[in-house]
């Protein structure tokens, strides 16, 4: 999936195969399936990813982010979706 195909109208959640480890800068995300490691470099993004599954859509989740940072966070989520760290809700 490319960033362009990331549908903010859909609900996403953290992949059950991914472990998030809190770090001073944000968190490390490790995918036990594809063995990818991602650095989430701001705590606000970590919080957003953790709470993603509680929102009906990515758009709803992004509404909790200050408007001027929304595009940046949307791109970050698209990147995480691309590496299967987050996946569409069932």
């Amino acid at each position: 999936m490319s960033a362009a195909e990331f549908d903010v109208g859909r609900g996403y959640r953290l992949n059950p195969q991914v472990a998030l480890r809190p770090e001073p800068f944000g968190a490390l995300a490790y995918h036990f399936g594809n063995r990818k490691l991602s650095f989430l470099k701001v705590p606000e993004l970590v919080e957003l990813v953790r709470e993603l599954g509680e929102h009906a859509s990515v758009e709803d989740a992004l509404a909790t982010v200050p408007e001027q940072r929304r595009s940046q966070f949307r791109n970050a989520l698209a990147s995480l979706a691309n590496s299967d760290m987050i996946r569409p809700q069932d």
């Binding site: 063995r35 490691l37 991602s38 989430l40 470099k41 940046q72 970050a76 990147s79 590496s83």
Partner: peptide, 11 residues
């Protein structure tokens, strides 16, 4: 304005 990347991927 260069956008800071919030996610960096690498094992």
């Amino acid at each position: 304005v260069e956008e800071e990347l919030l996610v960096e991927e690498v094992i």
